[in-house]
C-alpha cells in the first residue's frame, strides 16, 4: 500500500510552505464535490424525464470522480496511510469540510437545479484559477473540472432561464429555491486562515475576487430569467469547520453504510 503511494506521489509539486493549508483546502473542494455528487445521485431513476435523469446522473458522476481525485491527493498530503475511500467513508460529519449549501436535501427539481447552478457558477472561476496557477497533479485535476463544469453550468443556467420564463409555477419554485438557498452561498467566499494562506500564494483566487466572478454569472442569468436575487443580512457559516446542518449526518449514514458494514471489501 505505502509502496503504491510512493510510486505515484501526487503531492511533490506542492510547495512546503502551503502543504498544510492546502491539505485542509483539498477537503473543502473534495467534500463539496462528494456531498453534492451524492445529493444529485439521489435523482437517479427519479428525474423528470429520461433525458434529464441521465443528465443529472452524468453530473453526479463527474462530481464523485472529482472528489475521488481530490481526496486521493488530500490523503497523501495527510500522510497517515489513509486512502481516498477512507476519507470518504470513514470520517464522521464533524470531520467533513463541505459548505452547507451542498448538503441541504435535494428538494424539488427547481431546488436541485438552482443549487447546482449556484455551485457551478462558483466552481468554474475557482477551478479555472487553480488550473492556471497550481502545478502538478492539482493543475490536471482542476483542468478536468473546468471542462466538466463548463458544461454543467451551460445545462443548469439553461434550466434557470426556463424556470423563470416558463409557467407561473416553475417561476415560483425557482424563486422559492433561490430564497431558501441564498443565505448558504456566502459561506463559499468566507475568508479563513486556509483561504488567506492559499490566496496569498496565488494557488486559489482571493475570496472577494471569486465572489465577484460568481456574482457576475449569477446576476446575468437571474436577470435573463427574470428572477430576483434575495437580500440576506446574515449568511450561514461554520460548515467549513465542521459545524454542519442536521442534514449531513443523514446523508453520510446512507452514503457510508456499505463501506462501514463491510470494511475492506472489494469487488
Amino acid at each position: 500500500m505505502s509502496e503504491t503511494i510512493q510510486a505515484a506521489d501526487l503531492t511533490r509539486d506542492i510547495p512546503a510552505e502551503i502543504r498544510e493549508p492546502f491539505g485542509a483546502y483539498l477537503l473543502y473542494l473534495g467534500d463539496d464535490a462528494l456531498v453534492l455528487g451524492h445529493r444529485l445521485s439521489e435523482w437517479c431513476g427519479h428525474g423528470p424525464t429520461l433525458e434529464e435523469d441521465i443528465a443529472l446522473a452524468n453530473i453526479a458522476l463527474d462530481l464523485v470522480g472529482r472528489s475521488d481525485a481530490l481526496l486521493r491527493v488530500a490523503a497523501q498530503l495527510e500522510g497517515k496511510g489513509r486512502s481516498e475511500d477512507d476519507l470518504a467513508f470513514f470520517r464522521d460529519a464533524t470531520e467533513f469540510r463541505n459548505a452547507a449549501l451542498v448538503e441541504l436535501p435535494r428538494g424539488d427539481f427547481a431546488f436541485t437545479i438552482v443549487r447546482q447552478f449556484l455551485y457551478d457558477a462558483y466552481a468554474l472561476p475557482l477551478y479555472t484559477h487553480i488550473a492556471a496557477n497550481a502545478t502538478g497533479a492539482l493543475s490536471g485535476i482542476a483542468a478536468k473540472a473546468v471542462k466538466e463544469t463548463t458544461y454543467h453550468l451551460r445545462h443548469t443556467a439553461e434550466w434557470v432561464r426556463r424556470f423563470g420564463g416558463g409557467t407561473a409555477e416553475s417561476k415560483r419554485r425557482a424563486q422559492d429555491a433561490l430564497d431558501e438557498l441564498w443565505r448558504y452561498t456566502g459561506e463559499l467566499f468566507d475568508e479563513d486562515a486556509v483561504t488567506v494562506a492559499l490566496a496569498g500564494a496565488q494557488w486559489i483566487p482571493n475570496p472577494s475576487v471569486l465572489r465577484a466572478a460568481w456574482s457576475e454569472t449569477v446576476e446575468r442569468v437571474l436577470d435573463e430569467a427574470d428572477l430576483a436575487a434575495p437580500a440576506v443580512k446574515h449568511h450561514f457559516t461554520g460548515a467549513r469547520s465542521g459545524r454542519h446542518t442536521e442534514h449531513l449526518g443523514h446523508l453520510l449514514s446512507e452514503m457510508q453504510i456499505v463501506a462501514r458494514s463491510h470494511p475492506g471489501a472489494s469487488w
Binding site: 429520461l50 433525458e51 441521465i54 443528465a55 452524468n58 458544461y151 451551460r154 439553461e158
Partner: peptide, 11 residues
C-alpha cells in the same frame, strides 16, 4: 433545439 442538443449530449 438547445434542450435537444444537451439531451443528445447527455444520452
Amino acid at each position: 433545439d438547445e434542450m435537444a442538443l444537451q439531451n443528445a449530449r447527455d444520452v
